[in-house]
Design a protein around this nucleic acid. Structure first.
Lengths: 220, 220
DNA sequence: ACCTGAACACCGTTCAAGT
DNA sequence: ACCTGAACACCGTTCAAGT
């Protein structure tokens, strides 16, 4: 049995745990070096042994969020490549919206950690299995991520969390709010309020990602 | 001739001017109520006569950025609806990336100002002219914005400014950086470095938006 | 190596007071 | 109505010092 030793209280992992704890309890806006330190019962500057600075802390958090994305849907052999891409995209959106601070984190800086590379590889494989060239696969993998991340950004700004029940609540709220918008001069917008109210729903996401996927997989 | 009167030094407009001045000179990260006040030669709390709080200042700035987006491409009768949508999307991306703080601003909160409504209406018109139902037009208008804004977010995080020359510089840098990435275990990614290096270019953007548009306009 | 105390140069916002 | 002075409760980061 290894000697107990002086249990190192802190590590990059415990710092990240504490950081996500702050986000869960107080929201992403409240995330600060000082608050994380407080949670750990340590002085603020103590964290600088484990993270270079605030940006480095965020990078670590982004990588954790990316790791939470399940690549399983892309490997499922029971479905067509198009179905797999759609299922994966839906799951990725849900994971990012549901993860504490997920949306804010992906917006906080570049996404180029190790798990992003695995995600990209799995997407490439799926596009290639769909019969696309390697170049088109690479372009397609990026385009799909652009659509998912754009959606997550816009939905998060609207208060979405990926939870279907909350989605319905927000849609109802938005429908009511649209009643008070001045639509003189925008006749078409006036007639589409029911659709607009449901922009930030899984159904709208599926509609768009499916058309993007269809456009990318079309023979050519 | 109206009497000169005591020229009111401040207004919401001058505050916004000063705010964009700060962003131009010192970057979006340096934007603060106190710095804007300093530029105006006034004490920090003086701004609260013209903006409710920091979030309100950002809202005003977002609306200015949206106003900078040219809806002209959507009205051009010389092109097909698909071409008009593509041209508009390219121009919108360029404007947002080129505008001081544009990307950071669209990420800072919901986009629902008056000019967003006009933009939406012009998009709806174009989709309808392409023969789509009003419902599909509404879904399509949102999907297109999702793709543009997602692109802007990712490109801005990578340092893009919409300038084609800078685009090339960044692509070259990224190509070099990819040499040092460990690609063991990701064989497909290893073979697509040339495409990946050019993810944040107008060419890649056109590739993706065209396929999204084609998927949306396809008969069905 | 890891942590603390103290400090520096910042924030957004509020309140009371002046004109 | 519009602006100031002063204050409050925060930030990230650095430096010197202790163990």
């Amino acid at each position: 049995m290894a000697p107990p030793g002086p249990a190192r209280r802190l590590s990059e992992s415990t710092v990240l745990d504490a950081a996500f704890g702050v986000v869960v309890d107080q929201g992403f806006a409240a995330l600060s070096i000082r608050r994380v330190a407080a949670v750990l019962g340590v002085s603020p500057n103590a964290l600088y042994t484990y993270v270079a600075d605030r940006a480095d802390l965020l990078r670590g958090m982004v990588e954790r969020v990316m790791t939470a994305i399940d690549l399983g849907p892309l490997a499922s052999t029971a479905h067509t490549p198009a179905e797999r891409l759609e299922q994966f995209a839906v799951a990725m959106r849900r994971t990012l919206l549901g993860h504490p601070g997920g949306a804010a984190l992906i917006m906080s800086g570049p996404i180029d950690g190790p798990h992003s590379l695995l995600l990209n590889e799995a997407l490439l494989r799926t596009f290639v299995e769909a019969g696309k060239s390697l170049d088109d696969a690479a372009r397609g993998a990026y385009a799909l991520q652009v659509y998912v991340l754009g959606t997550v950004m816009l939905e998060a700004a609207d208060g979405g969390t990926g939870d279907p029940e909350r989605e319905e609540t927000l849609a109802t709220e938005r429908r009511a709010a649209l009643e008070h918008v001045d639509v003189s001069g925008v006749p078409l917008s006036a007639q589409t309020a029911d659709i607009v109210a449901r922009y930030n729903t899984t159904a709208q996401f599926r509609w768009g990602i499916r058309r993007l996927i269809d456009g990318m997989l079309a023979a050519g």
